[in-house]
Simulated assay, not measured.
Amino acid sequence: MREQNARLRKAVESGDLSLIQLYRPGLHKRVTELLQAATTNPWLVFTAYNLFRLAYGKTLELMVNDAIQIDPVASQGFEHLGGANQADWVGLGSLAGVLYDLTTEAGAESHMERFYGERMRIVTYDPPW
């Protein structure tokens, strides 16, 4: 996960949003549209930033899932869930039923407060903001 975050972070810090475009094309399009519109309506910068934060997290989740899927051991231990109102992964085999969520340190507490939080492990990442 650290490798994926470092790669995504480095790209974003250099202004390269191609990974977000690759993994989350719809979010990428919406963020860039909002940023363009913000040139005439500065209030849209806040909306664009919030959507960008979501796009970063979802992109990282999918990058980590790709890394899990190509690993012959890890791919047998986790199933990707993702989506609204559910964890990002569930453990399989000896980890069966254990849920995993990827979030920032700042978001960890709110993730633990979710209805499934008592069975969840939080994995945090450090975003570029």
Rank of each mutant, 00 (worst) to 15 (best):
64 V>Q: 03
54 L>G: 07
129 W>G: 13
122 I>A: 04
106 A>V: 13
69 Q>P: 09
83 G>R: 01
115 F>A: 14
115 F>N: 11
8 L>I: 05
120 M>S: 12
54 L>E: 14
14 S>L: 12
84 A>E: 11
29 K>Y: 12
39 T>K: 14
97 G>W: 09
53 R>H: 01
96 A>I: 02
11 A>C: 10
69 Q>L: 15
61 E>N: 11
73 V>L: 12
37 A>F: 06
48 A>E: 05
5 N>W: 02
119 R>C: 08
45 V>A: 11
26 G>A: 06
59 T>Y: 12
2 R>H: 08
50 N>I: 05
39 T>S: 14
9 R>V: 01
35 L>K: 10
43 W>T: 07
87 A>V: 08
118 E>I: 09
124 T>M: 01
18 S>K: 05
69 Q>F: 11
102 L>H: 00
7 R>Q: 15
62 L>R: 13
84 A>M: 05
55 A>F: 10
67 A>M: 08
36 Q>E: 15
79 E>L: 13
81 L>R: 14
128 P>E: 10
74 A>E: 12
51 L>Y: 09
14 S>A: 08
73 V>W: 04
35 L>S: 02
5 N>P: 05
15 G>H: 06
36 Q>G: 15
117 G>R: 03
78 F>C: 09
109 E>C: 01
113 E>I: 00
10 K>V: 03
17 L>E: 10
47 T>I: 10
60 L>W: 08
125 Y>H: 04
29 K>C: 04
40 T>A: 11
72 P>C: 11
111 H>P: 00
129 W>Y: 15
81 L>V: 05
22 L>P: 05
125 Y>S: 06
52 F>R: 00
7 R>I: 08
2 R>S: 07
27 L>C: 10
16 D>W: 00
69 Q>V: 11
31 V>D: 10
69 Q>A: 14
62 L>Y: 07
58 K>I: 04
66 D>G: 07
59 T>H: 13
2 R>V: 14
116 Y>M: 04
84 A>F: 02
47 T>P: 01
48 A>Q: 01
122 I>V: 14
107 G>V: 10
50 N>V: 00
48 A>L: 05
59 T>L: 04
108 A>M: 10
60 L>K: 04
74 A>G: 02
92 L>S: 01
64 V>T: 09
51 L>V: 10
68 I>R: 07
104 T>V: 06
64 V>H: 02
68 I>E: 08
122 I>K: 08
28 H>T: 06
19 L>P: 00
80 H>M: 02
78 F>I: 09
70 I>L: 09
35 L>P: 02
119 R>A: 12
12 V>I: 14
72 P>T: 12
62 L>W: 04
